[in-house]
């Protein structure tokens, strides 16, 4: 499984490097000590950086969520044109569109934190000291991050991101035509 994981990470290197960068950025924001910040490496730490164990609740959430949300936003924004043009409209012969498609997939494949960070988040949030309201609010985010981290361990996020690429035109279709009409009317 580790080999598959590393192969998937290497196949989606741009996204892995970007995730590592955002993880480092969130460490800086949360003043978490970084031990090794290399973004390119051929082991299971590819797409992550080595940092100290996070014992603060907020920092623990941020270190998982900030790279996730940045990669997600960038991934969708980069993927939308490739996905729409290639998968929905069927323009298969344009290299630029394929490049955009690949970049989007690579960003979306590397969304999730490593399992240790998610378990640390669980330990920090779901203990006796945390307010029940916080636990409820964080629950859906935690669920997404936990499931994503589990999938990422087996390299399955590559499949989910390709699946998402197929679904993206239909998601965009819910609001892009209305948005386009609105812009045209203004």
């Amino acid at each position: 499984m580790r080999i598959i994981y590393v192969i998937v990470k290497l196949l989606t290197l741009p996204g892995a490097m970007t995730h590592a960068f955002f993880e480092h950025m969130s460490c800086r924001i949360c003043k978490i000590l970084v031990e090794d910040a290399r973004t390119v490496r051929a082991d299971e730490m590819l797409s992550h950086i080595e940092h100290e164990l996070v014992k603060r609740r907020g920092a623990s959430f941020d270190i998982c969520f900030i790279p996730f949300i940045f990669n997600l936003f960038f991934g969708i924004a980069v993927l939308c044109s490739g996905s729409v043009a290639i998968l929905y409209l069927g323009s298969f012969k344009n290299a630029l569109l394929w490049f955009l498609f690949y970049m989007g997939i690579s960003l979306l494949t590397n969304l999730f934190p490593q399992m240790e960070d998610v378990m640390m988040l669980k330990e920090n949030i779901y203990n006796g000291k945390t307010n029940i309201a916080v636990k409820i609010i964080v629950a859906p985010f935690f669920a997404v991050l936990y499931i994503g981290a589990q999938l990422e361990r087996f390299g399955l996020t590559l499949i989910t991101s390709v699946g998402f690429a197929f679904a993206l035109p239909y998601i965009l279709g819910l609001f892009v035509p209305r948005l386009y009409d609105f812009i045209m009317s203004v």
Binding site: M17, A20, F21, R28
Partner: peptide, 26 residues
Amino acid sequence: EKYPYDFKGILMLIAVLGTLFVSLIT
């Protein structure tokens, strides 16, 4: 706490931002 960013990571971020711009225009 102020561990310097990996230069390759910075370059990749710039590339991603460029790609993002091209994607949005497209």
